[in-house]
Amino acid sequence: MNDFALALRQVRYQNRSFWRNPTVAFFTFLLPLIFLVILNALLGNNTDPIPGGEAKLAYFYVPSMAALSIINTCYTSLVMTISIARDDGVLKRVRGTPLPGWAYIFGRIIHTMLVMLLLVAIVVAFGAVFYGVDLPARTIPAFVVSVAVGAAAFSALGIALASFTPNAEAAPAVANATALPVLFISDVFVRLDNPPPWLATLGDIFPVKHLSEACQAAFNPFRTGSGFEWLDLAVVAAWGLAAALLAVRRFSWYPRE
């Protein structure tokens, strides 16, 4: 078997293993959908100024919950699953076989991305069916590219952070403590009106807001054109690249001693 076939095989086994654990599968999918329903129920029909005019908030929440889905699966769950696999010695065992390290990590990332894709598709379909928020055909490529760049970058960030978690028990705390505050200042759960300048700057530095804005642009009913937000995507990609470099340097197959 060549290396690429080996890597694809890892994806298959990761998938099989994931779907056999219904609790994890269920809650992975439920969380962003719960947020989507609650936020829309609370505020969905309010209108809000967005670039180009005024639209109901559902136009904001559908794409931002898509962004949350990307971050929640790629980043948060990778931090946790990699930390647990490392602590349990799963990674150490694999390291003792001829399987190339990249093929194993590839298997984990691609599996996570497939889960994420399904989840984003459900969120978008949910938005169209229940909230009348459509993704225009002309911006589909932009949305797909945004999702892809976001998925790659946040997977890299997840793997990079997993190389810093001290143990499996600490992983959920570390993942949430890094993700949640940034989500709140990044126009995901709430749109910030006139935030203090330092908070706005902070939000601009991290990649979450840029991913969220790139997704929102694709759903903006007032815009014309393809909906690409190249600058936002560039910031997200830069974070991803830096994280990937860090992950390559820092990644460990062994439990911390």
């Binding site: 990761q14 293993s17 654990n21 349990d88 010695g89 799963v90 065992r93 003792g96």
Partner: peptide, 11 residues
């Protein structure tokens, strides 16, 4: 064979 090493438990 390590002293303790995990494996995907849902396989």
């Amino acid at each position: 064979v390590l002293q303790s090493a995990g494996v995907e438990r849902f396989l």
